[in-house]
Design a protein around this nucleic acid. Structure first.
Lengths: 200, 200
DNA sequence: TCATATTATGAATTACTATTCATGTTTAAA
DNA sequence: TTTAAACATGAATAGTAATTCATAATATGA
C-alpha cells in the first residue's frame, strides 16, 4: 500500500498539513481510528475531501505519522526531564515519573497509541517492545548496585507500562471531574511502585 | 439501534448460535472488531450470510453479548478460587492472583474486552468502573486492619487492572515463545505488587 | 403424515466511504 | 506582470460491506 506522505512546500501548505494532523488527533481521540472517516476529518478541518489526498495517501499513513510524532515527543520529554537530575538511579526514577506524568498530561497520546494494537499489531509491538527494552537497559545496573530488588527487569518494564496504562485509563474515566491534584496522583503512584501494596 | 439477540429454540439453532459466537471470538481476537466483517464470520463458520441475522441484528450486539460472557466468566472464576481460601485478607490476595492468572490464561478475553474502549466508550467505562469499585470494597477493610499500606484504594484498583493489562500485553507479545513458566510469572508479579520495586 | 414453526440459503439491494480527477485559485520567483 | 508550481475544490466514480427477502429445507408434535 502507498505509504508516502507529501511534505508541503509553502507556508499555506504547511498550515493545511498541520490542520489535518491536529484535527485528526482530536477525532482519533474522540471517536477512535476506525470510526473516523476521511470525510469527518476534512469536514472538521473545513477543507475539501480531495485536499486530504494532497498530503496523505490514506488514513493509515496519517495514523503512522501521528504515532511517530507521539513517540518522539514522549522520548524527548523524558530525556529533558532526566537531564536535570543527578545520579543514575535518581535519573531512573525521574524517568519513570515523567513517563507516568506524560500519560496523565496526554490522554490523547495514550489513547491513540494504544489503539495501534487493533490497527496493526506490528506497530503496537514495535512501539512497546522498544519501550520495554529501553527500560530494561536502564534498570539492570540499578539491580547490580543493590538499589532495587532482584526482579525480572522485563516484567518490571511491562509493569511500568501497565501502570502508565492504568493512569491513562483513570484520567479517561475521570474526564470532567476535578483533576487538579495531578501531582498528588503521581506521588501516590510512585510510592506504590516503590514500596508495594502489602505490608509483610 | 436494534439490539435484541434471538435465542434459538432447537438443538440445531443453539449449535449455530454457538458456532457464530465461537468463530467471532476467534476473529475478534485475531483481526479486531472493526476489521472483522460479517462475511468473514459467516465464511469462517461455514454458514450463509443471512443466517447471521437470524440471531444477531448486527455486529455490535454480538460484541456486547461476547463481552458479557467474559464478564460473567471472569467473575465466576474469581469467586470460585476465592471460595477455597480462608481469611478475608488471604481471599483478597487470591482474588488478585486469580485475576492476573486469568489475564494470562485468556489473552482472547483481555484483547477483546480492551477494544471496547474504541467500540463504545460507555461499554468500557461500565466494565472497568465496575471492576474498580468491586476491588475497592474488598481492599478498604484490609487497610483498616493494617494489613496494607494506607494507599488510595481507587488508585490501587486501577493499578491492579493496569498490571493485569500489562500481563495480557506480555502474553500477547510472547505468543509463540515458551510459555511454560506461567506460574512463575504470576509469582513474580505478586511479589512485585507486594514489596514494590525499589529498596528504600 | 400433515401442518406449522424454526432454521437456512445466497443473490439482490441498499448504504456507505474511499479515492480520483477535471477544473480552478493562489503563491512566489523571474 | 507573467507563468509555473503548489495548493484547493467537490462532483463523479468505484469499491466494499451490511442487510433484506423470496425461497427452501428441516424439525417438531398433534
Amino acid at each position: 500500500m502507498e505509504n508516502n506522505i507529501k511534505i508541503p512546500k509553502t507556508r499555506n501548505g504547511r498550515a493545511t498539513f498541520n490542520l489535518i494532523v491536529d484535527t485528526t488527533i482530536d477525532l482519533f481521540y474522540k471517536k477512535g481510528y476506525f470510526k473516523t472517516k476521511i470525510k469527518d476529518i476534512t469536514d472538521s478541518a473545513g477543507i475539501a475531501a480531495g485536499t486530504f489526498y494532497l498530503y496523505f495517501p490514506n488514513k493509515l499513513s496519517l495514523y503512522k505519522y501521528i504515532l511517530m510524532q507521539f513517540q518522539h515527543d514522549i522520548r524527548r520529554t523524558i530525556a529533558e526531564s532526566v537531564s536535570n537530575v543527578k545520579g543514575r538511579f535518581e535519573k531512573e526514577k525521574e524517568g519513570i515519573k515523567t513517563f507516568i506524568q506524560y500519560s496523565l498530561d496526554n490522554p490523547h497520546a495514550y489513547n491513540i497509541i494504544w489503539e495501534s494494537l487493533y490497527i496493526d499489531k506490528k506497530l503496537f509491538i514495535d512501539y512497546y517492545d522498544g519501550f520495554a527494552k529501553r527500560y530494561e537497559r536502564g534498570l539492570n545496573p540499578s539491580i547490580k548496585d543493590g538499589e532495587m530488588h532482584d526482579v525480572d527487569t522485563e516484567l518490571v518494564s511491562y509493569i511500568l507500562m501497565g501502570v502508565a496504562n492504568f493512569i491513562g485509563l483513570k484520567v479517561l474515566l475521570d474526564l470532567g471531574k476535578n483533576n487538579d491534584d495531578i501531582d498528588e496522583v503521581v506521588e501516590q503512584v510512585m510510592s506504590i511502585i516503590k514500596t508495594g501494596i502489602f505490608k509483610d
